[in-house]
């Protein structure tokens, strides 16, 4: 389905990003596994992809740093020569109440979760415009739609990603590049395991499908958005949240 396509997945060493990288590879894509800190985990993902008979490389880059991103794109092109799919997944949380939130907690989250998406989008656009085709999939969050106390920075960034998705979709549509966002709800990962048990129980009550999501619930939708079947969709945000926000 995605045979010989090249996909870059940011923040792909674990969690949702890892699952996305593996799913895209399962569908035939060669994958650039971007990571910022955990080289060993990134290499595990690379090995797993190679064992499926696809190509993969791990590339360290801080998405909030334009130079890092530029170097990642150069490396990608030197190894694979095309960039067909970009999944902007890298993200962090620094939760705090607004009254207690420090400036660097705000800045770090905005820089990685929002500016990082801009940096990577800008960097792949040249190649995708030349190719006259491309798929950009941005990982937002359901809280970017609904809001969430204690996550003003994260919510602002994720809502920003939805706006950025729409603008890039309109700018790039004429070059056959589609840009869509996904908004996962509560997905079980390292990031959500940190939440207190009572918070988790409270969230479960709000999910009509009555379970937390798994990374594979998200990556299957990303694989669809990257596929030929999603060719007439752009600028959309798909909620993958068990019905939490309708």
């Amino acid at each position: 389905m995605l045979n010989d396509k090249t996909a870059i997945v940011t923040g792909a060493s674990r969690g949702i990003g890892r699952s996305i990288a593996l799913d895209l590879a399962k569908s035939g894509a060669n994958v650039v596994v971007n990571y910022s800190g955990n080289e060993a985990k990134a290499n595990e993902v690379v090995d797993e992809i190679k064992s499926m008979g696809r190509k993969a490389i791990a590339v360290k880059a801080d998405v909030s740093n334009p130079e890092d991103v530029q170097n990642m794109i150069k490396e990608t092109l030197s190894v694979f020569s095309t960039i067909d799919i970009l999944v902007n997944n890298a993200g962090i949380t620094r939760d705090n109440l607004i009254m207690r939130m420090k400036e660097d907690e705000w800045d770090d989250v905005i820089n990685i979760n929002l500016k990082g998406v801009f940096n990577c989008t800008k960097a792949v656009t040249r190649q995708m415009m030349k190719q006259r085709s491309g798929r950009i999939i941005n990982v937002s969050s359901i809280v970017g739609v609904s809001g969430n106390p204690g996550q003003a920075n994260y919510v602002a960034a994720k809502a920003g990603v939805i706006g950025l998705t729409k603008s890039s979709a309109k700018e790039l549509a004429s070059r056959n590049i589609t840009v869509n966002a996904i908004a996962p709800g509560f997905i079980s990962t390292d990031m959500t395991d940190k939440l207190a048990k009572d918070v988790q129980d409270e969230m479960l009550k709000q999910i009509p499908l009555a379970r937390f999501g798994e990374p594979s619930d998200v990556s299957s939708v990303v694989t669809f958005l990257a596929s030929e079947g999603a060719r007439y969709m752009t600028g959309q945000t798909l909620h993958i949240d068990g019905g939490m926000v309708m």
Partner: peptide, 11 residues
């Protein structure tokens, strides 16, 4: 040309 065309020409 539109704005994007000019960007592409420059590229």
């Amino acid at each position: 040309a539109d704005s994007l065309d000019v960007v592409e020409l420059v590229m």
